[in-house]
């Protein structure tokens, strides 16, 4: 612009400083990320090194013996699967239905906004509070006793807000223009939901649910007073039985069984974390598969 022809792309003093700042910011943010990853890496390394030797086919398929100082974890493993599956059966239909209602039908008024706010708050309630609610409601009031049913329902109540929020977000991610195009053709709300909205939100909904499963399987407090047993060497036969669970078992052998071998808790934790990671991997793979065939 000026009279003298400056060489093209020559740096001025100003953008030399900008570039330095850019470099610093990038380095700083990278460092923070590394700090974040560090604990995860250390935990995983510790678990694999300490707990790895404990793991065997035997360990996964036999009950604990000798006052839980030896043997395997089969009842806890099976118990956790029971608890999670029953919790899902209870929470997914209700949560998805509520999310569809809130996203697709509810008028935008103060009541809807209040309900949305309540759901978000519910997600922040500490799990021990849910545990007390579970004891009062399911164990005592509905007389399910301490059982898989009571524990799973407690877990379901706890996970419900998260299922609702993640489902609602998946539904909202489907552009409104699609809905309006359908309504304009004379489609009812439900026809629009069934043919356009749900098929396109399904991947997001399922991803949310899988993440929820992984969270649920690690919970201890909500099941401790409602259905999980300290020690029970048999497999549960139905939803009214008590059961052992991985998370509680880990808590018990670390705090209540002084002469348990030091490696044992690491082994249990490794199995639990592997379950969670496997489910997360599944959800990520699923998301990638679906993103590959995104329709808009």
């Amino acid at each position: 612009m000026t009279g003298t022809a400056a060489p093209l792309f020559a740096g001025t003093s100003l953008n030399a400083r900008d570039r330095k700042v850019e470099w610093l910011v990038r380095a700083l943010l990278g460092l923070m990320t590394a700090l974040l990853i560090l604990p995860v890496v250390i935990i995983m390394a510790l678990l694999v090194v300490e707990g790895g030797p404990v793991i065997s086919w035997e360990f996964l398929t036999s009950p604990p013996v000798d006052g839980m100082t030896a043997g395997g974890i089969l009842p806890a493993l099976v118990g956790t699967v029971w608890l999670v599956v029953v919790a899902l059966i209870a929470s997914v239909p209700v949560g998805v239905a509520a999310a569809v209602y809130l996203s697709e039908y509810a008028p935008d008024n103060w009541l809807t906004r209040a309900i949305n706010l309540a759901i978000i708050n519910l997600a922040g309630v500490p799990s021990i509070v849910h545990a007390l609610f579970g004891v009062g409601a399911f164990v005592l009031f509905f007389r399910f006793g301490t059982s898989i049913l009571a524990a799973s329902l407690t877990l379901a109540v706890m996970t419900l807000p998260v299922v609702i929020v993640s489902t609602r977000e998946s539904l909202q991610a489907v552009p409104r223009a699609f809905r309006e195009a359908c309504w304009n053709m004379g489609a009812t709300r439900w026809q629009t939901i069934r043919r356009i909205v749900l098929p396109n939100a399904l991947s997001g909904i399922l991803t949310g649910i899988i993440l929820e499963v992984s969270r649920t399987s690690g919970e201890t407090a909500p099941i401790m007073f409602t259905g999980a047993a300290f020690f029970l060497p048999f497999l549960p036969q139905g939803v009214l039985d008590q059961t052992m669970a991985m998370s509680l078992h880990l808590f018990v052998i670390t705090t209540q069984v002084p002469d348990a071998p030091e490696a044992l808790p690491f082994g249990v934790a490794l199995v639990l974390i592997s379950m969670v990671l496997a489910m997360n991997a599944l959800s990520i793979a699923f998301r990638m598969y679906v993103r590959g065939r995104k329709k808009w």
Binding site: F178, A181, G186
Partner: peptide, 20 residues
């Protein structure tokens, strides 16, 4: 209202291809 709308075709300025 659904029967009414189904007898009226609407085309807007920017095309909306449904995800189908």
């Amino acid at each position: 209202v659904y029967a009414l709308r189904s007898r009226i075709g609407v085309v807007f300025p920017l095309p909306v291809g449904l995800p189908l």
